[in-house]
Amino acid sequence: MWSYALKRAGTTAVTLLAASIIIFAFIHIVPGDPIYVLLGDTATPDQIDALRHQLGLDQPIILQYLTWIGHVLEGNLGRSIFFQAPVLSVIADGAETSALLATMTMIWVTLIGVPIGMIAAVRHGTWLDQGLSGAAMLMASIPTFWVGLYLILIFAAWLGWFPSSGYPSIFEGGLVNLRYLVLPSLALAAPNAALILRLTRASMLDVSREDYVRTARAKGIRPWQVVVRHILRNALLAVVSAFGFTFAALLSEAVVTETVFALPGIGRLVVQSILRRDYPVIQGVILVIVVVYLLINLIVDLSYRLLDPRVELQ
């Protein structure tokens, strides 16, 4: 297990290194010299040279990369042009909203996707199964922002049950502020719950065709016990590994959802920074999301191994 964990952590580090090169290259291939973005059109050549030297942009590219990655490892992601503040603190401001939104969405996804997928699998081949599977496919085909807009219309504008936009911190207003995240998390959960539903169903059907399920039935235990003790656990192993993927999809889909609901999260920060050409922030956010995504995948992968006793020999 430990050697596997080390090996897996090693590949993650290598992937991260390669990704960091791409992210570093990003700022160098954006159109227009970042210096002009910083100084505007009116800068004199002397000013430009001075800043170029100050930022280290006159050094060889490899040295620039090493300087940058060194700063990143110290937690220095550069300064935001728009906010005139360190990028890390700008990102940290959005982190609470994004983390809570993602967590709440994952809760919906689990609560909706797994049980309904189970029901569809147990009722395999009936009209109920076909209806649920069809509904899941429909849900996976709906744009989250469109659902979001209609959720705002119905539950905020017409019924007034939930706030339509924004999110004040729970550290200032208490846990009731979580109500601001109900509609966005539901919108974001819909397509992802659909994916988990279909995956749960498919892997339960796969497992139920296994020989050991037949052995369990031959013992004379009741059908629900066969499902709970033999099919479910083995099927959920496959679902667990999809959670990392879902989380990744969620990070990027949150970009749109946060825009619709005007949530002060990392996703909206990306979009606004793109429109403001605040490249250091874009670069920093992409780096942070990739790190989070790779770490989650690593954790999911290792916990998957932990849940499956077969790996001891591998």
């Binding site: 990704a19 990003f26 990744a248 999809a249 990027s252 970009v255 992409i286």
Partner: peptide
């Protein structure tokens, strides 16, 4: 390792 929409945005 880059979520697809993020890759597209970049």
């Amino acid at each position: 390792a880059f979520p697809s929409l993020l890759l597209a945005l970049g």
